[in-house]
Design a protein around this nucleic acid. Structure first.
Lengths: 333, 333
DNA sequence: CTGTTAGCGCGTTCAT
DNA sequence: ATGAACGCGCTAACAG
C-alpha cells in the first residue's frame, strides 16, 4: 500500500507536508495542497491508522464484550452501543463470551493488546480480577447490565430488583400465592437481584419463606424448560411462574405447551426482558421490559465521557428503570 | 503503558530478547526466559499489537459490514462469522449500514484505514465502486448474501431464486393461482432473485404475466405492512401472499391481523428467512429457511483461505441451498 | 543463544 | 509556509 512518503515524492514535497494536508493541520498554501491532493488521489493513498494510533496513543476503537449477540436483548444493546460509538467517531469490536469466564479473560487480554480505547463489559462472573487488570492499565471500562458486589467501576444497568418486585407484586395482587421464580446462575447479579425483588414482594405481602420457590439455572431456553418442569412437579403446583429472562420464558412456555397447560387460564406467567415487539406477531407475555437500546447508548456515552478525560472521577452507577408491560399472560384467581 | 524496552531493562537483556520470549521465537535459554518472564509479570507488560501489526503488515482483524444486526437473520450470520474468525485467531469489527450506500462507503474507508486484513460485505447496492476500491488495495473481500450483477468478488449466498421457486410452486400445488409477492428494493439482488424464482414457477405452471403481482418495497416491517395493504386491495384479492423476508413477513402478518383476516383459513402465506425457532413459541409460518449461521462461517472461512495466500484465484461463488420448512400457514383451495 | 542496526508509517518539535 | 530529525513500540536481518 502507498505510504505518505510516496505521496510526498510524487507531489515533490516533504512527507510532513502530506501529513498536514491530510489532517488539515497547520498552514498549507493552496498550491501545495493541490499538488498533494492530486498525488493522493492518483496513488489511491489511504492513511494508515495503525501508525497514527501509535503516535496519538489512541485507536478509536471500543470493545463490547457480552455473552451472546444471538439473544435479541443483547442485539439491541449492541445496536445502541454501535450507534453511540459511531456518532462519536469510534468503532466497536464485538466479542461473545457465552458466559465462560475463560473466554472473557482471553478476549480482554487480546483487546488490551489491541489497545482499544475503552471497554464495555457484561461480566461472566461477579469477579474483580479481570476488571482490575483492565483498570490497572488505565483503560476505561464500563460494566454493563450486571451489578458487581463491589462497585469498582462505572456501571450501567437496569433495576432488576425493582422490576422483579413489581412483577411479583402484580401477581400477588391478582391473588396468586404460589409463585415459582425461574432464574439464572447464582453468581450472576441479574439473576440474584431478581430473587431479591421477588422476596421483597413476598415479604411485603406477609408471606414467609415457605411461600418461596426459587429455581436457579442458566439464562437459556434449555434451562427454562428444565426449571419449568421442576416447578410444575411441585406439590402444590404454583399458580404462577416468573421467568427470569426472555430465554427462560421461551423455554418455560415450551414446557407448558408440551404439558398441555393453558396460559393464562390454568397458570399465569410473567417474564423479564421483552422480546422486540417487532419479532412477535402477538405479544402476550406480561413482562418487565428493559430499555436495552438506551442501556447500550448510555453506557457508551459514559465510557466516551471518561475517554474525554473525565477519568479520575469516582465510579458512577447508572440504574435505568424497567417498564412493566401488562399483556395477556396473567389471570386473577 | 509498559514497553518492551522497560521490560528489557529490568530483565537486563536487549529488547529483541524480550520480543523473542513473548513470541516464542528463536532460541532462548531457560535462564533468560525466566528473567524476562519475571520482568513481564512484575511490570504487567502487555504487548502492543499496533506496533506488531505495523511490522507484520497484518492486524488480525476482519470487518463485517451488514445492514442491521437487529434482524435475527443477520445476528445469526454475525455469530457464524465471529465463531469462525475467532477459531482462526481473528477479531471482527461489526458495522451496520442500514442499507445506506453512504454509510457503507464511510465504513469501508475507515476500515481500509484501519488496515483490516479482510472484509465481509453485504452490499447496500449492486454497485461495484466500493468493492473495487477495496480490491485495488489488495484487501480480500467476500460478498455476503447478495448477488452482484458482475461476479467480481468471492461471494457466499443462498439460493434465493430456487427458494422462491419452491415456495411459489408449493402454493401453486395447493391450488393457489393469485399469489402476491412482497419483496425488497429493486436494486438488491436478494429481492429480485426472489421475483425471478417466483416468475419461473408461475411460468412453469402455465400462468402468464397476468397472474403476477409483485410489490417492491424495503426489507422492513413497515414496508411489509404497507405492501400487504396494497396486496389486499387488489381485485380480485390474492389467495396467497409470499413475503420476501422475515421482516416483511412480520409486517404482513400484522396487517392481516388488523384486517381480521384469518391465516391460513382465509389467506395462505409463506415467507423467506426463518425466525430462529428459539424465538418463537409456536412457529407456524411456512418458509424458505436460509442457513444463516453456516453462511457466516463459510464466508469467513473462504476469506481466511484468501488471507492465507490463496489470493490470485478467480472469484469463487458459494451458493448454499435453502430449506423449505412446511408449517401451518398454507391451506389448499 | 543474544545483541545491534534499521525501519514499519506517521506526527511532534524545532528549525528555516 | 515548509522541512529535518527523531521517536511511537516492535521485530527482521544480520552479526557475534
Amino acid at each position: 500500500m502507498t505510504t505518505i512518503r510516496q505521496v510526498a515524492k510524487l507531489a515533490g514535497v516533504a512527507p510532513i507536508t502530506v501529513s498536514r494536508v491530510i489532517n488539515n493541520a497547520g498552514y498549507i498554501s493552496a498550491e501545495t495542497r493541490q499538488k498533494v491532493e492530486a498525488a493522493v488521489s492518483q496513488l489511491g493513498y489511504v492513511p494508515n491508522t495503525l501508525s497514527q494510533s501509535l503516535r496519538w496513543k489512541q485507536t478509536g476503537m471500543l470493545a463490547l464484550v457480552l455473552t451472546d449477540v444471538t439473544n435479541p436483548f443483547w442485539t439491541t444493546v449492541a445496536r445502541g452501543v454501535e450507534d453511540a460509538a459511531s456518532e462519536a467517531g469510534y468503532h466497536v469490536i464485538l466479542c461473545n463470551t457465552d458466559e465462560f469466564p475463560q473466554k472473557q479473560e482471553e478476549y480482554l487480554t487480546a483487546l488490551l493488546q489491541k489497545r482499544v480505547d475503552g471497554m464495555l463489559l457484561v461480566p461472566a462472573r461477579d469477579d474483580l480480577e479481570d476488571i482490575q487488570r483492565v483498570q490497572m492499565l488505565k483503560v476505561p471500562l464500563v460494566v454493563l447490565d450486571r451489578r458487581l458486589s463491589q462497585p469498582v467501576a462505572d456501571a450501567v444497568r437496569c433495576d432488576s430488583e425493582s422490576g422483579a418486585y413489581q412483577l411479583t407484586r402484580l401477581l400477588l395482587e391478582r391473588g396468586h400465592r404460589l409463585i415459582a421464580l425461574l432464574t439464572g446462575p447464582e453468581h450472576v447479579a441479574t439473576a440474584t437481584d431478581r430473587v431479591t425483588g421477588y422476596r421483597r414482594a413476598l415479604r411485603a405481602a406477609g408471606l414467609d419463606s415457605d411461600g418461596e420457590s426459587v429455581f436457579y439455572g442458566a439464562f437459556t431456553i434449555q434451562s427454562g424448560q428444565d426449571m419449568a418442569r421442576q416447578a410444575l412437579a411441585l406439590n402444590p403446583r404454583p399458580t404462577a411462574i416468573f421467568a427470569g429472562n426472555n430465554f427462560i420464558a421461551i423455554g418455560m412456555m415450551q414446557t407448558l405447551r408440551e404439558a398441555g397447560i393453558l396460559v393464562p387460564e390454568e397458570i399465569s406467567v410473567v417474564g423479564f426482558d421483552d422480546l422486540p415487539a417487532s419479532l412477535l406477531l402477538d405479544p402476550f407475555l406480561t413482562v418487565a421490559a428493559q430499555p436495552a437500546y438506551e442501556m447500550g447508548r448510555e453506557a457508551t456515552n459514559l465510557l466516551i465521557k471518561r475517554l474525554a478525560g473525565d477519568g479520575a472521577q469516582a465510579p458512577q452507577e447508572v440504574v435505568l428503570p424497567v417498564e412493566i408491560v401488562e399483556r395477556k399472560s396473567v389471570l386473577g384467581r
